[in-house]
Amino acid sequence: MAAQTGESASTVLVCGEVRTCLLPTTQALDRRGAAQLLRLRADMYVRVSERPIMHVLSPETLTGVDCRLPASDGSRTRAVGTVIGRAALTEGRLLQTTSYFGLPAVGPDTRRPWGQYLVRPGIVEPFGMLPRKATAAGVLQGARRGELDTGTIAEGLAAQLCRHELLDRRAPFASAPTRLRWVALRTGGDRPAALTNFTLAEDGLRTVKLRLPPDVPASAAAGLCEDLALHDWLLTHVQRMLDDHPFDRADDSRSLAALRPAVTHLLHLWMPRAHVDGALAHLWDTLEAAPGFTRQWQNLVQRIRDQLTLLDLAQCRRAASSKGCEE
């Protein structure tokens, strides 16, 4: 976790956005392909982890910003610094692009030489005092025109990767990207990390609020939010596949076609906290208690298996009856 060195102690708020989508390609990428896709910088390693699920993480890139911060109370705070962008690919199938940055409580009233911002990657300094609560709320509401927009950066990275020559741009089934915006308020040393809010909004937007102790790097929070976003995407899409298809009225071959993508591409991807920093993995417990992400997933998986059993039974019955007719 190179780029975050020394940053956590000075920030009071960390904000970010994760964009999750199906990789637009017929075949899921293997380890080599995934590493090639996410090689955002030729001179840096792509992090590849194969256990318990293949997870490939790109090097981090920076985008310079000098603009107003979003704020729920209409305050206009100018801020300068760099936003980190990175991409992750799970099992060569689900692509996530993330952008995030940390904000200190106070910054100088003038813009400093750019080199000084560059040696503190992922820090955006406010001019004067940071209106912390208003900024956190503003980020979750979404940036207005001209305000720092993590969504633009994450989206730009996703668009860049989806144009990669390795991809045939043919997704195996229809899906919609989701966006997860998150803010993490830095706590004093004694308060533990916490997931204080997860809201499912409309149009594929989710928002998350965290409490983050000073010794946990911002990248760990980004990693947790990527994990939450990935599993939320899976729940959303498998649920939609089951909801959208009229199993009771459709013929068997169409029902099978509706279930196939879930079985082929998605069911094996459920692996909560597999690549979440040890300091934050327990935050999943909150979501498991209510609403119970894994409980809902198991329910969905069971429904798919039950539908497949029914289809199988129906096919056997038809086979048996046609055999009976022949005799």
Binding site: R41, A42, T63, G64, R78, V80, G146, E147, T152
Partner: peptide
């Protein structure tokens, strides 16, 4: 065999003029 100049070129993060809110220059 390492394209050093190209690697450094990829590491350029341009100083954002005021008003830059996330579009890469």
């Amino acid at each position: 065999g390492v394209a050093l100049a190209e690697s450094v070129a990829h590491r350029l993060v341009e100083s954002p003029p005021p008003g830059s809110y996330g579009f890469r220059p």
